[in-house]
């Protein structure tokens, strides 16, 4: 379990408070108005922005000051999730070993992950020759080999068309269920929430609220959420 305890994130004049827990094997959608601090919340969880107050606990261990690479999570960003100068195989391999000295067992792991996302024949290609959807799949293959307990998505599929985005979300949901990881995903689209989320973290007015069950919330939204959804 990941717990954000009485946390405050400060960036210049912007302030976000959060006090919430992330349970194992559940999928969370982070929604809220633009500029409310959804990405900031993820960046703080991942260790890119320090907490100005409070603590971050993982299985009751304090990981507030851990470097991003040492946290039990991995993150996909809106863009630049792959190095354009490395092959797909190398990009995925970096998730296993930063020095890329892969044993044959690790190479098999990479190849299996690529096959799992449907890129088995693309191992030696560079990301530049792949389509947008294929690039997303390659990044997901890396998430798969990293096998962290938490996966954070900061709208990595925002640039894809609706059909492709649904395909990716389904793939993510499958992979997350298989690996029993937890998913925390920023999104703007209510239909994404219905599609894959178990719980919703609503971010507005400088507060990231405690997760609430997605289905109940979306069927019967409170006033502030109704204002946002329109």
């Amino acid at each position: 379990m990941l717990r954000l305890e009485a946390a405050e994130i400060t960036q210049d004049t912007f302030k976000l408070r959060a006090d919430l827990s992330i349970e194992r094997s559940r999928k969370y959608a982070v929604i809220g108005p633009s500029g409310a601090g959804k990405s900031t919340l993820l960046a703080a969880l991942c260790g890119f922005i320090p907490l100005s107050k409070g603590r971050l606990l993982w299985q009751d261990n304090n990981i507030t000051s851990f470097a991003p690479g040492n946290r039990p999570m991995t993150m996909l960003f809106q863009d630049n999730n792959l190095f354009p100068h490395l092959s797909v195989q190398q990009n995925v391999g970096l998730g296993l070993r930063p020095d890329l000295r892969l044993s044959s067992g690790e190479k098999d792991l990479v190849q299996n992950a690529l096959s799992r996302v449907g890129l088995g024949d693309f191992a030696q290609r560079k990301p530049g020759v792949l389509s947008g959807g294929q690039q997303s799949r390659a990044a997901l293959a890396r998430v798969l080999v990293q096998a962290r307990p938490l996966v954070l998505l900061d709208e990595p599929f925002a640039a894809l068309g609706p059909a492709l985005r649904n395909e990716m979300l389904d793939l993510v949901a499958e992979l997350i269920t298989e690996t029993k990881a937890s998913l925390i995903m920023v999104t703007h689209a209510p239909e994404d929430v219905r599609r894959i989320a178990d719980d919703v973290i609503f971010v507005a007015n400088g507060v990231a609220e405690e997760p609430r069950p997605a289905a109940a919330l979306m069927d019967n939204p409170p006033q502030e959420l109704r204002d946002y959804l329109g």
Binding site: A67, P68, G69, F83
Partner: peptide, 22 residues
């Protein structure tokens, strides 16, 4: 690519070898 290298824990020589130099 700073954030990507950090989520991957890429540092030291591998950082030079696989990101900066190429």
């Amino acid at each position: 690519y700073g954030r990507l290298t950090q989520t991957l824990g890429l540092g030291g020589w591998p950082l030079w070898r696989w990101m900066i130099l190429p």
